[in-house]
Amino acid sequence: MTDDNVRAAYGARAAEYTTLFGSVKDMHKLDRLCIKRWAEHIEGPVIDAGCGPGHWTDFLHRRGVEVQGVDLVPEFIDRAREHFPGVPYRVASLRDLGVPEGSLHGVLAWYSLIHVHPDDLPAVLSGIARALTRGGHLLIGFFEGAAARPFEHAVAPAYYWSVSQMRHILREAGFEVCSVETRRDPGKRPHAAIAARLHL
């Protein structure tokens, strides 16, 4: 999927998506715990990359994190600003977060990498690495499955990743994997989350 394809697909369904998934209360309690725990020791600017309707950005902001949400889809940014007016949001791509190199202490990419074509994922993660300071933190959430296998997502085509392959790509981008969580909930696609740290 190109950025233009993703932008158009989500833009057309932004209102519906926000109604269904625009509140942290609707998210799994273990996801809330995972993101909360990840952010507890980060001191410095954080970007919620692919923030969608902005609920996780607000979740971090309420916990004192210096965070801003960025998303490719202007309709999402409009809704995020409306629902969470005290939190900064702006339009940007995962391929270019619009920050100086080495300026971030953390990047949250919670299910925002699933539409990135497998050929492009190493470059996207390397770009995130360049935006982070040494020792900076990354947390990604994704659907676990056969590495790079496509599936029909409700909004736009997406890809599964195996934990082992995602570990490999992260290492190649300069990260050290700190923790891995997996979960299989009845009736839902398998979940995985990886917390990683940019090598010092």
Rank of each mutant, 00 (worst) to 15 (best):
G98I: 02
V99N: 13
R63L: 00
D96Y: 00
R79P: 00
A92K: 06
G69W: 03
F59W: 15
P74I: 02
L72W: 07
H61M: 06
Q68L: 14
R62K: 15
G106A: 04
S103N: 14
V73S: 09
A92H: 08
R95G: 07
R90L: 12
P74N: 10
G102R: 09
F59T: 13
V67K: 14
E82G: 00
S103W: 02
H61K: 15
G69M: 10
V65M: 07
G102Q: 09
L97T: 04
L94V: 02
H83V: 01
P88N: 11
H105S: 15
D71V: 11
Q68E: 15
P100W: 08
G69V: 11
G69S: 13
V70F: 12
S103K: 10
P85K: 05
G69I: 06
D96C: 00
L60W: 04
G64L: 01
E82W: 03
R95A: 13
V87L: 09
V87P: 05
D71G: 08
V65W: 09
L104Q: 07
R79K: 13
P74F: 02
D96M: 03
L72C: 12
Q68D: 02
G106E: 07
A92N: 03
F76K: 02
R95F: 09
F59V: 12
D71K: 07
D96P: 06
H105R: 15
P88Y: 05
L97I: 05
R90V: 09
D78H: 13
L60E: 13
S93Q: 01
E75P: 05
G64A: 12
H61G: 08
V99Y: 05
L104N: 10
L97C: 05
G102S: 07
A80K: 11
G64V: 07
A80L: 04
S103F: 01
S103T: 11
V65A: 14
G86P: 03
R81W: 01
G102N: 08
V67Y: 11
F76I: 05
D78I: 03
L60D: 14
H61R: 15
D96R: 14
L60G: 11
R63G: 12
H61F: 15
E66V: 13
V91I: 12
R62N: 15
G106P: 10
H83I: 08
Q68V: 14
L104E: 12
E66K: 15
P74H: 11
H83K: 15
R95E: 10
L60A: 11
H61D: 14
V91N: 03
P85G: 05
